[in-house]
Design a protein around this nucleic acid. Structure first.
Ligand SMILES: [Mn+2]
Ligand SMILES: [Mn+2]
Ligand SMILES: [Mn+2]
Ligand SMILES: [Mn+2]
Lengths: 262, 262
DNA sequence: CGTACTATTTCGGTATACCTAAAATTTATA
DNA sequence: TATAAATTTTAGGTATACCGAAATAGTACG
């Protein structure tokens, strides 16, 4: 309800609320928000009340938390900051993709708008970050690449890695050690029985759906078993969809473009 | 007396205490510290007590405040951060020298040690910032260039601008508009009567003390009148001393090398 | 449909870093 | 050297953002 003095805490709350619905639509609950922020549930209750006073979230007691238009706008601004910073750190300061998240988490609150825009210009206005996450433009427009989480894909599907969750640096290092990175092409071979690993095969980067020649040598060195955490952290673009997010005009009623899945 | 949780406030206090004695030796008082930090005197009293508890300052009630060895170490680390950041913003992100101070003031608290060192490496380990202030090395060694504030110099002295106080962006823009910048060569012509301006003459950058040919055309376009604020904000290296600070071994008992003046 | 279990909020408290006003101390001046 | 003026500290209070424990609301199921 009020004109808003924002703070780095508020920025983080709003960003986490947004992120929760970026790749699926169930809204976040108090407990989930507390877990992601590493604070007590009681702290979330208090802060959510404040966010509601400032008209950044909609919230009825005992129900999940949703961003208002203002909240979404702030969240997208923070997401833009975070992802541009990650991209900059990797491209200009020799950070590796598993190091950037924590650094960006702090810097996003400290840099000026001028800094952000100079950085974006220097990078050539990139549209995705080192983990494949799309970067909103300065007006808050964002376009999600039409991708599927690896656990949704059946055997035989082929695609290119469009996004890797950057939450766990360990996992990022593990994937890299096994030759998996953004844009790596994969084929799903199949699921090992009873919630086990998912078997995939790396495809040569030359592979494309238009060249349907699929060299199928069953047990070469390109096969890999991916554990549960990896499977839930990888998103693939299937068919020939190209990966760079292109900015769209804002859709009426929301700053976000419609997601694909579901 | 205690192992220390540091905070951005503490970092700023210690940095301001240090800065006060960087170009002269009288220690800072409570009121001066409050003025520079933009807080109430009472806030300083409280914070100084805390700094003393943490062994960052020496302080007896009603007397000035001095850094301990630990305090100096922290201050020099912050000064390094600040000045490297300013240098980076100017060289890599197209900031102008009057914009960088405020940005660095925030960033200095947010960046990691890794960030600082990557930045320093990328810049080739610079030893002075865009305003001529020396940058301490990673061990906290700093060397002040042997310079004199413009108001200490008599008519006839010649020298090169070694440092310009970066506190007032307005002044920086004004100096730049009049063609004065780091390393500009000047000759002091004289003081206008009764606390008025100081008249100086810009010398061609080709001028050097070894070439004592001093082309003296009295009233050309290179003459300038500098007001009080400008005179107090400019430091000159006289004679042929070169400007780049070279890192020295630490002197016993202090991390700082002896200053020249006084 | 009532009771146990869980999720969420409320309550009382803590730590940091500020503030204004009042008290204490130092310094300047008559 | 008293007294006035300026400086500095202390006292009392605010705002933010946390916490653990207690109270309350919602859900699950026997
Ligand atoms: Mn953050
Ligand atoms: Mn990322
Ligand atoms: Mn600062
Ligand atoms: Mn500077």
């Amino acid at each position: 309800m009020k004109a808003t003095p924002t703070s780095s805490s508020i920025e983080d709350y709003v960003k986490v609320i947004y992120s929760f619905t970026e790749w699926q639509d169930k809204p976040i609950t108090s407990t989930q928000l507390a877990a992601r922020l590493g604070v007590a549930n009681s702290s979330v209750s208090e802060m959510v009340r404040k966010l509601k006073d400032q008209d950044l979230v909609d919230h009825e007691p005992y129900s999940p938390i949703r961003l208002t238009a203002d909240g979404l706008k702030l969240a997208l601004a923070m997401v833009r900051r975070h992802r541009l910073l990650e991209t900059y750190l990797v491209r200009e300061l020799d950070f590796s993709w598993d190091e950037v998240h924590d650094e960006a988490e702090h810097l996003e609150h400290a840099v000026s708008e001028t800094f952000i825009e100079r950085m974006s210009a220097k990078l050539g206005h990139p549209t995705r970050d080192p983990h494949g996450d799309p970067i909103p433009d300065a007006q808050g427009h964002i376009v999600m690449p039409p991708s599927h989480r690896l656990d949704e894909l059946d055997a035989g599907h082929r695609g290119q890695i469009a996004r890797i969750s950057d939450h766990d640096p360990e996992l990022l290092r593990h994937l890299q050690a096994n030759g998996l990175g953004l844009d790596t092409k994969l084929e799903v071979i199949g699921r090992r029985p009873f919630g086990g690993t998912l078997e995939v095969r790396k495809l040569p980067s030359s592979f494309s759906p238009s060249s349907p020649a699929v060299p199928s040598s069953p047990d070469d060195a390109d096969r890999l078993d991916l554990g549960e955490e990896a499977v839930l952290s990888l998103w693939l673009v299937t068919q020939g969809t190209h990966l760079d997010c292109t900015v769209q005009e804002p859709t009426a009623g929301s700053l976000m473009s419609p997601r694909n899945g579901r």
